[in-house]
């Protein structure tokens, strides 16, 4: 799956032979080795793989939180640093990372304050995006007054509030119970269908990846690399019930086999 830029749309992410080696005291650790991946604008792509396969590192490279040591990367046609300065992406972390001293509303307005958005506009956006994740009535609560799932919804709304074209999500639902997770998966999918943002989504969970994505990138550790990219042609307007259909299970099986292949020689 090393397809070149497709004529059908501009590339949101373009990785060519991307490598990253961490220098440690003992031996250098190869976190990413010759990663090639092109993500089109408006795609929902999941990165899946066991711990240590470099999926989070790859996301952090896209966000300019880590610098690659080799290869080439473009985010919306810019270098990651330029893209970060252009506030091209919103990042959702594994933990909500809400600031405890700010109310939900003011947490949402944090990026807008930093980016110099005028106050009336900030208020309007906070209202709009809180409504989008269904938390209007919690605007004036502090983070500790919310459950983990609600906190993560706030953090997603916060990433959306400055309207980036690209959403980078690092196991956002990893710490939540399964029922909440299902619920949020469905919400996220509806959100994506509404906004058609490009989403790069890191996960451990096969059903989650299959349920959400257009494409599933299967990664393997030591060195971190892409094993296989699996296309997912399940129709739009997916529902949770769909996870029992043969078509869904078929793709899930493909992902599982690819993951197992990565482990076979260890």
């Amino acid at each position: 799956m090393k397809a070149g830029p497709s004529p059908s749309g501009p590339l949101a992410i373009d990785l060519r032979d991307l490598s990253l080696t961490f220098e440690t005291a003992e031996t250098p650790v190869v976190a990413l080795s010759k990663v090639n991946l092109q993500i089109k604008s408006g795609e929902f792509v999941s990165l899946i793989g066991p711990s240590g396969c470099g999926k989070t590192t790859l996301l952090r490279v896209m966000a300019d939180l880590v610098r690659p040591t080799g290869g080439d990367i473009k985010v919306n046609g810019l270098s990651p640093g330029e893209a970060r300065l252009a506030r091209a992406y919103g990042y959702v972390f594994q933990a909500p990372a809400l600031y405890a001293w700010r109310t939900v509303r003011r947490n949402l307005m944090l990026p807008l304050e930093i980016m110099g958005v005028a106050k009336p506009e900030r208020e309007a956006r906070a209202r709009q995006y809180l409504a989008m994740v269904g938390l209007e009535e919690f605007a004036n609560k502090f983070p500790w007054q919310l459950s983990g799932g609600m906190q993560q919804r706030v953090s997603i709304a916060r990433a959306l509030s400055f309207e980036p074209k690209l959403l980078l999500m690092d196991e956002p639902f990893g710490a939540l119970d399964e029922i909440t997770r299902d619920h949020l998966n469905e919400q996220l999918l509806r959100l994506w269908e509404q906004t058609r943002k490009t989403v790069v989504f890191v996960t451990h969970s096969i059903p989650e990846a299959v349920f959400l994505s257009n494409r599933i990138v299967v990664m393997s550790p030591r060195p971190g690399r892409i094993l296989e990219v699996i296309e997912n042609h399940l129709p739009a307007n997916r529902t949770l019930d769909m996870r029992e259909t043969p078509a869904f299970l078929d793709i899930a099986l493909k992902v599982r086999r690819a993951l197992r292949a990565g482990h076979s020689y260890e």
């Binding site: 966000a63 300019d64 939180l65 970060r84 300065l85 506030r87 992406y89 919103g90 990042y91 972390f93 990372a97 944090l110 990026p111 930093i114 980016m115």
Partner: peptide, 8 residues
């Protein structure tokens, strides 16, 4: 990191 993603 969050602050960095905002280029604060």
């Amino acid at each position: 990191d969050l602050m960095r993603t905002y280029s604060a």
